[in-house]
Structure formats: structure tokens, C-alpha cells
């Protein structure tokens, strides 16, 4: 077990290194730079721009810049934002809360809804409900998230006036109810894809278990159907779902970014877009590394939990 963990950890570090090289190269090889925003206004002279580029160390060779970045990263210093001079971790920390709030609530919603649809679909396989759920999940996976957000806003904010069109809370009213009211729209939008994924996996996981011998045996013994479902099937079907949650992290992060844009949600997605536009290299790198770590952590936890649940797996990895 320890050996497995160490190996996975080593692998993860190697991956992070590759990720950092790819990310750094993409950012720095592209034309333009963090000073572009000041150039267009005609307010700062070329001499000013050149001087600041020099001061930021932007005109040194790329490998040198990367090596320096990596060295500082290894000593725990993620660098400072070009925009507000704050340490990158601090910048990420001050935006992560809003994103986590959105991701956790929508995951919870998706789990409950997805599990319900998936279980019902599996029990009543090939029923009208099952077919509709299948089609619905497929469409949910095909709708552009941002467009679904627009439709939600158009219907529930513009049309019916039930929901606010964006933001995390009303200025001057930070009450829990107010925040909850603002959370509904983005939560539904972000949960759409997850619900579809969950219901599909839940359904097939249930079907796998239903067809297994011990269920057939229980059924043959005359154990009531309801009890079979709850005690045998559901318990065993939920196991693989743990992995799904872990592996779903990247999709969820992507979805959060788009959802935050549509609903002007002040989270990591917004921060990422702002930072990309300003070419705030340290923050963009920070977010890329941070999300890569989240993704790896997600899959590691998935593996570990799965390993704990089913000891045979751990050894085979």
C-alpha cells in the first residue's frame, strides 16, 4: 500500500513537472505580454514600457525564466501577481472560496438527482422513463454550458424575474438567503453536465450489480426486491461512483469557469480569464498548476478509495 502510494506520488510529481513546462511554454512563447495593456492607451511611453519589462525580468531567455520560476516554486514561492503584486497563492486563495461553493453545491445536487435518475432508470430498464432519461442525459451533455446559462437567465431572470442574473450576493446584503438566491442559477447550470454523467454511470453500475450472481441468489432465495435493491445492489453500485467523483474534477473545473463567466461569479474562472487577458503569467501558471494538482489529487483519492473498497485493485496498479 505504501509502495503504491509512493509510486503514485512520484508519478504525480513527474506529471506536474511536464504540466509546468507545457504551461510555461504556451504562455511565454506567444506574442504580446503583460505590458500590452498599458501600451494601447498612449499614456506610458515606450521607454517606460521597456524599463518595466526589464524590471520584471521579461527580456531574459525563457529557460532562465523557467528555471527561476521552478526553483522558487520548489521552495514554496509561487511568485507575485503582475496586476496587484500579491503573492499568487494569496490571490488564488481569495478566489477559491466562491468556486468551491459553486462546485460543491452543484456536485451535491448532481449526485442526488443523478443517483435518483440512474437508479430508477436501472430498475425500470427500457421503460419510458429510462428512455427519456437516456435522451435527456445525451442532450445535457451536448448543450453548450454557456448557452444553457443564457437560456436560464433569459427565462428565470429576464422573463419570470425569479432569479438574479449574476453575482454572488447583492451589495450591502450579504445574508445567507441572499447568497442562496444568487447560487441557484449557476448551481443548476453547472450541475447539468454532472447530473447527466452521474445518472449514466449510476445506471450502468446498478445494472452491473443487478446481474451479478449474489443478487440472483438473493432473489432466488425470495428476499424481497426492495431489500435486495437497498442492501445488495445500491451498496455495491455506489462503490464505483466514488471513482467517478474523483475523475470528474477536470470537467467540473472547466464547467465552473464557463458558468462563472456567464453569471459574473467572482471565482477562479473569472480570475483565470482576467489573468489570461492581462498576461499575468505568475497567476495563470499558478492556476494551471493548482488545477493540475486538484485533478491529480482527485484521481489519487479515487484510486485510493477504490483500493480500500476493493483490495484487489490496489495491487494491480
Amino acid at each position: 500500500m505504501i509502495g503504491f502510494l509512493l509510486r503514485r506520488l512520484g508519478q504525480a510529481l513527474l506529471l506536474l513537472l511536464i504540466v509546468s513546462v507545457i504551461g510555461f511554454a504556451i504562455l511565454h512563447l506567444a506574442p504580446g505580454g503583460p505590458l500590452s495593456q498599458f501600451a494601447a492607451g498612449g499614456d506610458m511611453t515606450q521607454a517606460d514600457l521597456d524599463r518595466i519589462a526589464e524590471q520584471l525580468g521579461l527580456n531574459r531567455p525563457l529557460p532562465v525564466q523557467y528555471a527561476e520560476w521552478l526553483w522558487r516554486m520548489l521552495s514554496g514561492d509561487w511568485g507575485r501577481s503582475y496586476r496587484d503584486q500579491q503573492p499568487v497563492l494569496h490571490v488564488i486563495g481569495s478566489h477559491i472560496g466562491a468556486t468551491l461553493e459553486l462546485m460543491l453545491t452543484s456536485t451535491l445536487l448532481a449526485m442526488l438527482l443523478g443517483a435518483w435518475v440512474g437508479i430508477l432508470g436501472a430498475i425500470k430498464r427500457y421503460s419510458i422513463f429510462d428512455s427519456l432519461a437516456t435522451i435527456g442525459a445525451m442532450i445535457a451533455l451536448s448543450i453548450p454550458t454557456f448557452w444553457f446559462g443564457l437560456v436560464i437567465i433569459y427565462v428565470f431572470s429576464v422573463g419570470l424575474g425569479w432569479l438574479p442574473a449574476g453575482n454572488r450576493y447583492t451589495v450591502g446584503d450579504g445574508s445567507f438567503l441572499n447568497q442562496l438566491h444568487h447560487l441557484i442559477g449557476p448551481c443548476i447550470v453547472l450541475a447539468l453536465v454532472s447530473t447527466a454523467v452521474w445518472s449514466r454511470y449510476m445506471r450502468s453500475s446498478m445494472l452491473d450489480v443487478i446481474n451479478q450472481d449474489f443478487v440472483r441468489t438473493a432473489r432466488a432465495k425470495g428476499v424481497p426486491e426492495r431489500s435486495i435493491l437497498l442492501r445488495h445492489v445500491l451498496r455495491n453500485a455506489l462503490l464505483p461512483m466514488i471513482t467517478i467523483t474523483g475523475l470528474h474534477v477536470p470537467t467540473l473545473l472547466s464547467g465552473a469557469l464557463v458558468t462563472e463567466t456567464v453569471f459574473t461569479w467572482p471565482g477562479m474562472g473569472r480570475l483565470f480569464l482576467d489573468s489570461i487577458s492581462y498576461r499575468d503569467y505568475p497567476v495563470v501558471m499558478g492556476i494551471l498548476m493548482f488545477s493540475a494538482i486538484l485533478v491529480l489529487l482527485g484521481s489519487l483519492i479515487a484510486d485510493l478509495l477504490y483500493g480500500v473498497a476493493d483490495p484487489r485493485i490496489a495491487g494491480s496498479h
Partner: peptide, 24 residues
């Protein structure tokens, strides 16, 4: 409450506007 909304990559064009409105 009737609300409207215009979601897009604000940072992208806000940077541009930021850069474009120079001194007033």
C-alpha cells in the same frame, strides 16, 4: 426584479477598453 445580463469574456475586451480609454 427584471434583470438582464451580458456574459462574455469581459476581461478580454475590458482590457482593451482599459487600454483604450487613456487619459481623460
Amino acid at each position: 426584479m427584471r434583470d438582464i445580463h451580458d456574459p462574455r469574456l469581459v476581461s478580454n475586451w475590458s482590457l482593451n477598453r482599459r487600454a483604450l480609454f487613456g487619459l481623460g
